[in-house]
Design a protein around this nucleic acid. Structure first.
Lengths: 230, 230
DNA sequence: TGACCTTTGTGATACAAAGCACACATGGAC
DNA sequence: GTCCATGTGTGCTTTGTATCACAAAGGTCA
């Protein structure tokens, strides 16, 4: 395999579990900041639902349990969105942030691995409302290929590359058993995918420019137990 | 050289999405370090499966995509486990780390919210082998209370506190809809739970000394889209 | 035994991110 | 128009963490 760096995570010395961003991306914005933007979007969306037009960094900070200064600093990486003495326009800040993150459009995604976990993922109703459409499903098992699950025809992994191009899929969601995860991720990368959401319990190697985020509840539990005693 | 790790979330003074550890814990060990330990445990376990007795920080670092120095530094917070010129004994280091994390015992957990997501969680086969036993299930809906799901009798949330004590439950897993998540988390805290795994898309408020880890695939996707273009 | 090689453990250093504090816009009151 | 209250945007300071670099420790073999 090639030995370009695989580094992960962040542009930063953050080295946080389950996040791997190789963003060789020139983006001078720290990765941690990018990760907080969706939180702001979510909070703003809730705020506007409750009928508010304007919000201060203080209010937003109280809701998200962070300091107002950090929020202002984060936003300042992208421009000046607030009015002094007044605060931020809720709707317009939300819109600006969505645009920065690329959330003002829909994204086609695919799930690879149609076992128990993959089925749960494709039937999870939380993705579509946020613009993440699962448009293809794959599996390696011939007994599963050909089935229709949640309206998706399960296809053979050998067709991955072709379908990715055909359907303009930009994000891969990996739900295969851990022993096949690296090869599936390699296949996604070969197919040109740059963003991978990985449910398998491993730290995959990916080339620069590919971002991987891991979802690993066991890891989360295992680090919490440390704090239970003391 | 640059390096990185990946996986879930982060630490305290860092305010990273999905992690909130207030642990007023006196532990002088940085939270990020605690979060990396389970990665080491996992890698060591794989190593010993492949028949190796000894591993160097360099080998471990290669596998986990991080610098050897960071691994040695992390370990040094807890003691001296290696032999110079040789490396670490795989089995014994794994055992020591498990002990530090509290993984050398089993933990009783409960899932609150028996909707689609909760059912997926209780039937997920990845928890038990790691010592996390789900011993109770709760829901607020009277139609669901009384059902048996994956061998668990679903109980009313009103019985939460009682059952937590009766079954010595130490960890709560929250899979209720977001609009009820904060109240359920409050109830867990009232019941004496100190560790919460939260699947609901919000940043819950918890008192000092309670650790919350969030599992939020949508947030992960939303921060990845930023890097797709550029 | 001692020369040599490897790999640890750790003080010192570099750097990134968080928080502080204040200058300065802005809007409202009068 | 002037004054005041409010809350942004940001340079500077502090904090936290990753990395460097090297002394000391163990192993090996002549």
């Amino acid at each position: 395999m090639d030995q370009r760096a695989f580094w992960t995570c962040t542009a930063r010395p953050m080295t946080t579990p389950n996040i791997s961003n190789d963003s060789g991306s020139p983006s001078n914005v720290p990765e941690v900041v990018i990760q907080r933007l969706p939180l702001y979007v979510r909070a703003l969306s809730q705020f506007s639902d409750s009928g508010n037009n304007v919000i201060s960094s203080e209010q937003l900070g109280r809701r998200l349990q962070m300091t107002p200064a950090q929020i202002r600093k984060d936003l300042s990486y992208f421009g000046r969105f607030g009015k002094q003495g007044r605060g931020y326009n809720v709707a317009s800040l939300e819109q600006r942030l969505r645009s920065i993150l690329g959330l003002d459009r829909a994204w086609n995604t695919t799930v690879i691995g149609m076992g128990r976990l993959g089925r749960a993922v494709v039937s999870y109703p939380g993705f579509a409302p946020e613009g993440f459409n699962i448009v293809a499903a794959f599996d390696a098992d011939d007994d599963i290929v050909g089935q229709t699950i949640s309206g998706l025809d399960v296809q053979s992994i050998s067709a991955l590359s072709e379908i990715v191009k055909e359907k303009d899929i930009k994000i891969g969601i990996v739900t295969v058993p851990v022993e096949h995860a690296q090869e599936v991720i390699d296949a996604l990368v070969d197919a040109g995918i740059k963003s991978i959401l990985n449910y398998a319990p491993l730290s995959p190697k990916v080339p620069d420019g590919v971002t991987v985020r891991g979802i690993d509840p066991v890891l989360s539990l295992q680090s919490m137990t440390y704090y239970i005693n003391e």
